[in-house]
Amino acid sequence: MTFFGALFYILAAVILVSTGLAVSSRILMHAVIHLIVALLATALLFFLLGAPLLAAFQVIVYAGAIMVLFLFIVMLIRPVEEPRPRSRRLWRLAPPLVLAGVTFAAALVLVFAEPAGTGGRLELASASPRELSEFVFREYWLAVETVAFLLFLALAGAYYLVRGTRGSPDNTEEP
């Protein structure tokens, strides 16, 4: 196993373990912190797989902006701890778990029965930020504009949702 292969497996283990901890954590704050670790490991994985610009964006946008927003909301509304699921409800978890297992097995069979791509191992390569930016603005300029518009709409929608729910006298439904 080469050095970069070992690096991939270490990063994969970090991503899997921290994502599992985030999914199964009963305390929201712990879940968000675990997910931040998973996203930072994903950024390193992007760097390893030849996407340095995406690695930077992963740190800035995902781990930086989105997760901080989650942390902010968790601290803002101070949620109560979830109760542990009662044992008689555990059997309700069985159908989704069986479905997830079957899906996972089927996808594994698909992935390994039909060798994807060029076959063999991935070669090291890297797309410089300049290449990627020129490619995106040449091939996907309309999508860039659409995402910009979508972000503006999301901003307006979020502002509309939380506007006037505190301190406005005409809102009688506030608890």
Partner: peptide, 24 residues
């Protein structure tokens, strides 16, 4: 890689509206 850029944009928009809904 271009699609991952757009996924990040969509995720940012989704989480902004989603968390606003949660607060509401």
């Amino acid at each position: 890689q271009a699609f991952v850029l757009f996924i990040m944009g969509v995720a940012a928009a989704e989480v902004a509206v989603g968390l606003a809904l949660v607060v509401y």
